[in-house]
Amino acid sequence: MKKRFKRVLIIGICVLMISLLAGCSETKKDQSSEASKSERTITDLAGKSVTLPPVAEIKNVVIIAPPLLSTYISNQLSTENLVGVSAVALSEMNKALVDTFVPNNQAINTSFVSSSYESNTEELLKLDPDLILVYGDNQKKGLETIQVPVVDFFIKNQVNEDWSVQIDQLMREIFGLENDDSLQQEWDTANKKVDTILSEVQSTEKQKGLMIMSNTGDKITVRGAGTYGDDWLVKSGLVNAAAELTGDNIEVTMEQILAWNPDIVYVFRGLPATQYLSGAITGQDWSQIQAFKDGKIYNTPVGIMNWGTPCADSPLMIQWLVSKNFPEKLSDNDFKTILKEFYERRYEIKLTDEMIQSILTPVTGK
């Protein structure tokens, strides 16, 4: 009799607990539902207050700043509400993966914005946008008086982790997403691995790295101190060979590069690394540079975007750089595993060997 009473009591308590939990869950759903039905005021990265429509009413999204597309995809895992982007956003994406990341890319309007990111307001409004995402004042030209919220993702400091994480955080706030799988968590994992490797090589003399911003054959520009490129080089354990210069996209001569004699060269844009290594660039002799002698001239990978730009793939970039700078500490095969797991975790994409190849050895041009 006592056992039966105890069993009934336990069952009663369980039922009560389930009811309470269900009530809490329902309350949470109700609160979330209410939040999605009301307007919100947020502060964008430029420090401006912007009133947004309810999450549920954001149907048509326009993205003008190319890197923001990667973060949008990372968080939404869908582009069905994307009605307009700059053409650069799609061209900076891996060509073998465009249809995977943006299956409706042919239907998305790119003609409303110029190559300098200025919008034709009349054409833009034809897209009936509920939200416009930009970077900096130049991309807001012509949008000052329209009755559509414009969110600016501009920040002054050029630190890849800071901006890629702040993009992610603001995007999550805009679309009412939780932070249980934020980009900061990916950065924390990447930084732990990188810090371990760098601590193991700290007694060795630092190698000199150079990041080419662009090389057309006629003109070479580099990424000097205080730039995203400089941040990549320094954070991955190198000294920026062009640190005596300040700023991005600075034109230099082959004589300057020869004097710097970098151990490793990373090519962000322009002629591909294969042309450097094969001596195929007319008027440029790279053969006397240490990076050429050691075969250490690399294109920056291109995944959801070119990794030379802070984006949703940025935690991968820092690890890839370290794998090239210190291959004895992080092998190509180990990095490929990191890449595959990241893409499946972040984008629900199972990369094939061909996809991995296209990311790590992208086809580039002028």
Rank of each mutant, 00 (worst) to 15 (best):
V15G: 11
L16V: 15
A22P: 09
A22H: 10
C24K: 14
S25P: 02
T27R: 12
Q31W: 09
S33K: 14
S33W: 12
E34K: 15
S38K: 15
T41V: 14
D44N: 00
L45F: 00
E57F: 06
K59W: 08
V61P: 02
P66Q: 06
P67N: 01
Q76F: 10
E80Y: 14
E80R: 13
G84F: 09
V85L: 11
A89M: 02
S91H: 10
E92F: 09
K95Y: 06
L97P: 03
A107S: 13
S115V: 06
E118M: 13
T121P: 01
L127Y: 11
D130H: 06
I132D: 06
V134Y: 08
Y135P: 03
N138M: 11
Q139P: 03
V148Q: 00
P149G: 07
I155C: 00
V159I: 11
W163P: 03
S164P: 01
Q169K: 15
D181K: 14
S182V: 12
E186F: 13
E186H: 13
K193C: 04
D195C: 06
T196Q: 14
N215F: 12
I220Y: 01
A225P: 01
G229L: 00
N240C: 14
A243R: 10
E251K: 06
E251R: 04
Q256I: 04
A259L: 14
R269I: 03
Q275S: 06
L277E: 06
L277H: 05
S278A: 11
T282N: 02
W286C: 05
F292K: 06
D294M: 03
G295W: 03
I297A: 12
G303H: 05
W307I: 06
P310M: 03
C311H: 00
S314Q: 02
I338V: 15
L339M: 08
R345A: 15
L351Q: 11
T352Y: 10
D353H: 08
S358K: 08
P362R: 03
G365E: 09
